[in-house]
Each structure stands twice: as C-alpha cells, then as structure tokens.
C-alpha cells in the first residue's frame, strides 16, 4: 500500500521497481475479495476461493466493527472488513517474468478494502494489523512539507517576540 501512486507510472526504491502503468490497460478491482488469514498457506497461485470460503455477517457490531464469521481448514475465523484510508489503495503485485530485471514488479489488481481474520478471537481495534494503520498518520506528519501558512505563522511568532 502506498500513497498517491496512481498518478506516477512507476515507483522505484532500493528494493526494486513497481510498474503501475500496464500500458493503459485497466486492472481487476478486488475490493471485497481480499482476505488476510491468520495462518501461512504454503501455496502461491489461483484457487477457487469464492466456492469454498464463505464469510457470513453475524449482524454483531463491536466498537464500530461489523463481525463476520468464516471457516478455513476446520478452524473458525472471526473477522471484519476494513476500508483503506482515503487516498490509499491496495495493490496485488507480481514479479515481472523478464529475467533482465529480477527486482521489477507489475501491478495485477487493486483493492479499496480488505477483510482481516483472527483464529479464536474477535477482531478489535487493538489487533496489531488494525493498529498498523496508525503508521499512515505518523508517516503523513513526518513527510508533509511545511506549507506557506506554516512558515508565515512561525514568522509571525518570531516578530511578536
């Protein structure tokens, strides 16, 4: 997840390059279909999720979180679907197969919310995953450039002294 990426055709970091352009092609929107499970599935590839994974709304709401229920491999999962903050999008990336640049990724799909699942526990705002969203606010405060007004108010304060 990253901010404001849609306007730039690619993003480069030390870790590699992500290509968001796809030559103008539109990518599938997976909103409502992205699930974060509390386990590690040692498989990477397509599978018939919609036929086998059937989340059900319990009708219960706790601290503003709508509780859902699902089962995976015999375990009961309790979860909730959370929207990504305004200005952010989720992306599904795949390593580009051209061997030239091993650290090049392409965007295959995007999403605006995701369902977070716990094994044996109700989802809560205190879950590490939910709290990780705090980083967005901290990051914004750290990286936001000072505006003309910010500078003016400082100047004003200095003049007063």
């Amino acid at each position: 997840m990253d901010e404001g990426i849609e306007c730039s055709p690619s993003l480069s970091t030390a870790a590699g390059t992500v290509n968001f352009n796809r030559n103008g092609e539109s990518v599938p929107d997976l909103t409502g279909k992205v699930h974060q499970l509390p386990c590690c599935i040692k498989y990477d590839g397509p599978t018939s999720v919609a036929h086998y994974f059937k989340p059900k709304d319990t009708g219960v709401e706790i601290d503003g979180l709508r509780i859902e229920e699902a089962y995976f491999r015999g375990r009961k999962l309790q979860g909730t679907t959370i929207p990504l903050p305004q200005g952010y999008s989720g992306f599904v990336l795949r390593k580009e197969t051209s061997a030239e640049n091993a650290k090049c990724w392409e965007m295959n799909a995007k999403f605006q919310n995701l369902s977070v699942w716990n094994h044996d526990g109700l989802p809560s705002h205190d879950d590490a995953f939910m709290r990780s969203f705090h980083w967005f606010a901290v990051s914004k405060a750290l990286h936001q450039p000072a505006s003309a007004e910010d500078l003016e108010s400082i100047l004003f304060c200095m003049e007063q002294e």
Partner: peptide, 24 residues
C-alpha cells in the same frame, strides 16, 4: 465444511493437501 477436520481420518489426507501453518 461438512467434514470434521479434527478427525484422524482427515490427517491421513494431509499429504494430498497444501501445508497450512497456524499460530495455535
């Protein structure tokens, strides 16, 4: 989900299934 995953019978199928690791 009709199947009781906790039964020994299911464990014997594990070699046909992708491994899944749980915190529990």
């Amino acid at each position: 989900t009709l199947v009781r995953f906790s039964w020994g019978t299911c464990t014997s199928y594990s070699k046909h299934l992708v491994e899944v690791l749980w915190e529990a």
